[in-house]
Design a protein around this nucleic acid. Sequence first.
DNA 1: GCCACATCATGCACCACACGCATCAACTCT
DNA 2: AGAGTTGATGCGTGTGGTGCATGATGTGGC
Lengths: 296, 296
Amino acid sequence: MRVVHDVAMELRQLNSFVVVAEELNVGRAAVRLHLTQPSLSRQIAALEHDLGVELFARVKRRFVLTAAGEAFLVDAKELLRRADEAVRTAQRTHRGELGTLRLRFVQSATFEALPRLLGTFRAAYPEVVLDLETMTTLRQTDALRDGRIDVGLLRLPAAEPGLSSRVVSHDPLVVALPAGHRLAKRKRIGLAELAEETFVLYTRATGPSVHDAIVGYCRAAGFVPRIVQEGADVQTIVALVAAGLGVSLLIAPTPPIDPEAVVYRKLSDNLPPWQLSVAWSPDNSSPVLERFLQLV
Amino acid sequence: MRVVHDVAMELRQLNSFVVVAEELNVGRAAVRLHLTQPSLSRQIAALEHDLGVELFARVKRRFVLTAAGEAFLVDAKELLRRADEAVRTAQRTHRGELGTLRLRFVQSATFEALPRLLGTFRAAYPEVVLDLETMTTLRQTDALRDGRIDVGLLRLPAAEPGLSSRVVSHDPLVVALPAGHRLAKRKRIGLAELAEETFVLYTRATGPSVHDAIVGYCRAAGFVPRIVQEGADVQTIVALVAAGLGVSLLIAPTPPIDPEAVVYRKLSDNLPPWQLSVAWSPDNSSPVLERFLQLV
DNA sequence: GCCACATCATGCACCACACGCATCAACTCT
DNA sequence: AGAGTTGATGCGTGTGGTGCATGATGTGGC
């Protein structure tokens, strides 16, 4: 016994009914339905029997819709339309043309990689809903493994266990200096030249690898950086540099800012570039994710 | 080939899909559907094949809805709900509990018969839409024969060919006099006493039978009424009587009015009462009409 | 007014398809 | 590692939907 509805009515019968109601002639309707007249005649009779309702009045061997038939015709058409719609929705969702992509990204991705990737994706799949938010690398990897998000734009120093990933850009470290700084006129700056400076750095809490790597580079250059302040996000760090609290080492691309306040300079040291990666769970079979990865 | 939708999907499959999606276990779902597990398993496979979409991800012998499955589940539930609704609507329409009753009535019915009949009907069938309008007897009979209306409240002197009817009230003629009239103090008035009066009567255009009958009664009483004015509706006629243009003969019930302006008096003559009838077409098989006639 | 035609219903034979039973395959849990 | 759970598949069977032939009934033409 059916749980939701308990009538043996089927979509095939509804379709037959609609065609007969439109033609008001069983023979012609049968032709349209690629059936024989007797078969269709019985189909309608069965539908009426199932409903317990006469849909047509057989007056003088002619079909006329009854009041109940009129009412049912409207509903039947609507049902068939919606059934068709439901099928197409399922198929488009299957193809990844409909659905939601839950994307998270580190803040430094917002300046270049994110708009580039989203621009391409949105042009190809305009009907996919984008669920976007910034999130640190650490929390992204957790969320990816738990299936709470589909894809992350993050800073992976190496392959992450349990996740697939692909590098989308190599970003160098740059020096951020207050505009009036003694080194501000130079094109390139050696890391060792910053030995006596005070530093404003990314806080360890959000992404320990960035913080630790920068400190490591400084040690390799022969000094321990004097960190006077940490900032949770790039905008804050740049503001602190502009305020003259110190210099900073940032991952490019950097936020646009007034060159009268802060300047960015390349490092002459040959440090390995920082990788920005797209990461996802190999268990996640979301069609939308597949489409996104095809375009990366 | 189907005209509206061309997928072999059926409601039975949708129902099975919904139950499986709810249980996420084919065996338990099969129990709920009174089927065996293999049968249900094949039904789902057939549905997926028809749609060309995997609705479930078979991961480790366990069922999980895919993104397309999630989307389809919502639509499938909605479709089943609406299918059920459509069936109930058709059945209720068949029983005359839903639908429209197109009722027309002569103006004199509005004072008593109409509110009485409508009150009873509306209490019994509150969901039937009432299509109400005043209409003269002549136009009602035409409209009934053409099927433009379902039922009429009208003045039939005799059985109307092609229509069924039933008398619902017998209404006497009454005299309407200006309040200051010489006969206004009398309880009853003989028709012959009005021989010298001037008359305001129903116009022949709207209902010739009423006009002609009144003139006939006057002739039988020995005089030809001097008609100084005709009025299309009762309200107008009463206003003209109040203005002192003449007296009038009206069919009861009469509109309530200020007794300082106009008074109604019974006739002492033994004139046959005027009949108010309900009329309908015997060809009209509207279930709502049937219900209405049951209550008359 | 009678006969050919149109139209819906019904009897009958047939076959596809959905079903149940038995079993296989693969994963889980102890 | 073995028992249990769970979904898929092979196979035989019966029901139900189908086509063909025909009946019943109303319509229109000459």
